[in-house]
């Protein structure tokens, strides 16, 4: 599974960090999210899907 953030949509709710701190980080500049890696290991797939479902801006996309 791969994951990406639509940067124009992210405004820094930070819910992805709560869901999956292993892959999501928040910027020290503006609190917007960025990824440590776009590759999602199997063990983190459920957490990344939670991050996607929990994003109020629908700024997270996943693909198989």
């Amino acid at each position: 599974m791969k994951v990406a953030i639509i940067e124009e949509r992210c405004v820094g709710h930070g819910m992805c960090l709560l869901a999956c701190p292993e892959l999501f980080e928040l910027s020290d500049e503006d609190g917007h999210a960025f990824l440590r890696s776009e590759n999602v290991p199997p063990a983190l797939q459920e957490a990344v899907l939670q991050a996607q479902r929990g994003c109020p801006e629908q700024a997270i996309v996943t693909s198989a």
Binding site: V11, G12, G54
Partner: peptide, 20 residues
């Protein structure tokens, strides 16, 4: 409750700057 898509801090570009 999780995930929790609440928008109590607002949404869009004006979302609460002080939320952290």
């Amino acid at each position: 409750r999780f995930p929790n898509r609440h928008i109590a801090f607002g949404a869009g570009m004006h979302r609460c700057i002080g939320s952290f």
